[in-house]
Simulated assay, not measured.
Amino acid sequence: MELWYTEKQTENFGITAKITETLVNEQTEFQHLAIIDTVEFGRMLVLDGMVMTTVKDEFVYHEMVAHPALFTHPNPEQVLVVGGGDGGVIREVLKHPKVKKAVLVEIDGKVVEYCKKYIPETAGELDNPRVEVIINDGYMHIHDHKNTYDVIMVDSTEPVGPAVQLFSQGFYKGIYDALKEDGIFVAQTDNPWFKADLIRTVNRDVKEIFPIVRVYVANIPTYPSGLWTFTMGSKKHDPLQVDTDAIPELDTKYYTPRLHKAAFALPRIVEDLVKGE
């Protein structure tokens, strides 16, 4: 008998994958957590029925959360990742030798625990001495740490359950205050096909707080529609002014120095959303 997992991405559309084994199936204090082994994408982390990461394509998301901001900031010594308990963004952050400390604040300790056990491809650097893992509410951590970080990365689920407040203007204002005077933040902001209103709203809210706001895109096969957006807010440094010739080649599979500015060249469908159309 064949077993298949289906994520219902909207009421009328979903993706499906053939699975070989269910490794974790648990209701935590905050969400339903599953780790399944799929034929096509390898082990897959699923939270509240939504694919968060897979072994096969995780590098796209994690590299594109981390590297555009870290190569835009001239000296990113103190970095905060909100969410991201799978550890993939932290792994990419540590590829930057200028980073002295990377703090991960994840609300659900079970995500960290199970990813360390079953998805070491992403979680393998969580015990690195440059990393501090805090199991707590990222929203509160932001508001309790003013003028602390050079770069803040919001690696959240979609805006449901405990992640809803991570898409609020109050949270973005808290991020601004938690950043140093030339700080940068970046957040995943979903896709233009099914979450157009979210992209419009986030872009408007961030523009009311940060003087420099840029949106960029990447292709992630297991995320709804495949076309994914990220929003960067910066106090001083513009990612489009980066000297890409000075960006060193890293051990990456998606991000490259040439892609740094190219990712900000938006398809018209996304460009119109950023303009508020």
Rank of each mutant, 00 (worst) to 15 (best):
T229L: 06
H260F: 00
Q78E: 13
P159M: 01
F185C: 11
F41A: 13
Y118F: 14
A187Y: 07
D243F: 06
E121A: 15
H62V: 05
M52N: 14
N219K: 03
I36P: 01
N75T: 02
V55I: 14
R258W: 10
Q165G: 00
N12V: 06
I35V: 15
F13G: 00
K146T: 12
H67N: 08
V215K: 05
L104T: 09
V164L: 05
K195Q: 11
T201N: 13
M232T: 10
T252D: 01
D245C: 03
R130Y: 05
I15Y: 06
F13H: 03
V112R: 11
E92H: 11
H96R: 05
P239R: 02
E92V: 03
E2N: 00
F230S: 09
I212N: 13
H143Y: 12
T201Q: 12
V93I: 15
K8R: 15
K18W: 05
I247W: 01
G161C: 05
E249A: 00
M232S: 07
Y61N: 10
K8M: 11
G161P: 01
H143M: 09
T20G: 13
T28Q: 10
N147A: 13
G174T: 14
V206W: 03
P192Q: 04
S225D: 00
A265S: 08
V65G: 00
G138N: 03
E77R: 09
K235A: 07
T22L: 05
V154A: 12
L273R: 09
K110V: 00
L198Y: 09
V105E: 06
Y149Q: 07
V202N: 14
L33H: 14
G83H: 08
Q169Y: 00
E277G: 11
E29K: 14
F13S: 14
T244E: 13
T244N: 02
D177H: 11
A178K: 05
V51L: 01
V270S: 01
P248F: 07
V111D: 07
D137W: 02
L3F: 11
E121I: 08
G83W: 09
K261N: 07
Y149V: 05
V111Y: 11
D86W: 07
V160G: 10
A187C: 06
K116F: 00
